[in-house]
Simulated assay, not measured.
Amino acid sequence: MAEGSEADGDGCTAPDDHLLRAGFALGGDDGCIAEARHHAVAFLEEARTDCHLAVSARAVDLTQLVVSELVTNARKYAPGPVLMELAITSRSVKVAVWDSDPTVPSALAADPGRIGQHGLEIVKAVTEDLAVRQEPVGKRITARIALADASSHNTAARSPA
């Protein structure tokens, strides 16, 4: 399913090197959102077992949420297939979703009375980084999610070496 990469021959990698990558073509049909979430969970489980990464339950939940929102938007606004790429470092998982619509989305202003169209707001709120890039055909939206809970980072930073 996924392809690993190592920075050098001794198996050591820098914190920002991708340890595992996988790409998926989703048909854009009714089941593609659930299929994308399934791929994301399997990918993170592979990262846990094969790369021995500590992937928090929160990171799994947020990755599924982000995948669901991005693939839902691609399916809703762009005809045809959706491509999803997952990549993981020792610190974060990157979710990239490509669709054929070149229109760059933007989060709408907060409106508690609005029903729907909160997906991009949600994704921006739960990710460390969000980028939208127009491609020669369509666009690619990339989000980065921390593997560890924020409290884990704070605890590790405070504990003596």
Results as ranks from 00 to 15, higher is better:
3 E>L: 11
3 E>N: 11
5 S>D: 12
5 S>G: 14
5 S>T: 06
5 S>A: 13
6 E>F: 15
6 E>M: 13
8 D>P: 00
8 D>Y: 11
9 G>W: 15
10 D>F: 15
12 C>P: 00
15 P>V: 08
16 D>G: 10
18 H>N: 10
18 H>G: 08
18 H>F: 15
20 L>S: 08
21 R>N: 09
23 G>V: 07
24 F>C: 06
25 A>F: 08
26 L>G: 02
28 G>W: 02
28 G>N: 04
28 G>C: 01
29 D>W: 11
29 D>L: 05
30 D>V: 11
30 D>S: 13
32 C>W: 00
34 A>P: 04
35 E>V: 09
36 A>L: 02
36 A>M: 05
37 R>A: 12
38 H>P: 00
38 H>S: 14
39 H>Q: 13
39 H>E: 15
39 H>M: 06
42 A>T: 12
43 F>E: 01
43 F>G: 01
47 A>D: 02
48 R>P: 05
48 R>W: 03
51 C>M: 14
52 H>G: 08
52 H>I: 00
52 H>Y: 10
54 A>Y: 12
55 V>Y: 03
56 S>C: 06
60 V>G: 04
61 D>Q: 13
66 V>F: 01
67 V>F: 05
67 V>Q: 06
70 L>R: 03
72 T>M: 08
73 N>P: 02
75 R>Y: 05
75 R>L: 12
76 K>Y: 06
78 A>I: 02
81 P>G: 15
81 P>C: 08
81 P>R: 15
83 L>H: 13
84 M>S: 03
84 M>P: 04
86 L>I: 06
89 T>P: 08
89 T>C: 05
90 S>W: 05
91 R>Q: 13
95 V>G: 04
96 A>P: 03
97 V>M: 03
98 W>R: 14
100 S>M: 09
100 S>A: 14
100 S>C: 07
101 D>N: 15
102 P>F: 07
102 P>Y: 06
106 S>W: 06
108 L>I: 03
108 L>C: 07
108 L>N: 10
109 A>W: 00
110 A>C: 08
110 A>K: 10
110 A>R: 10
111 D>I: 09
111 D>T: 08
112 P>Y: 09
115 I>K: 14
116 G>R: 03
116 G>W: 01
117 Q>G: 11
119 G>N: 07
120 L>F: 11
122 I>A: 03
126 V>K: 00
128 E>S: 13
128 E>Y: 00
128 E>I: 01
131 A>D: 15
131 A>K: 13
134 Q>K: 13
139 K>F: 04
140 R>V: 13
141 I>H: 03
144 R>M: 04
146 A>I: 01
146 A>D: 07
147 L>K: 02
148 A>D: 09
150 A>C: 04
151 S>P: 00
155 T>F: 12
155 T>S: 12
158 R>C: 09
159 S>G: 05
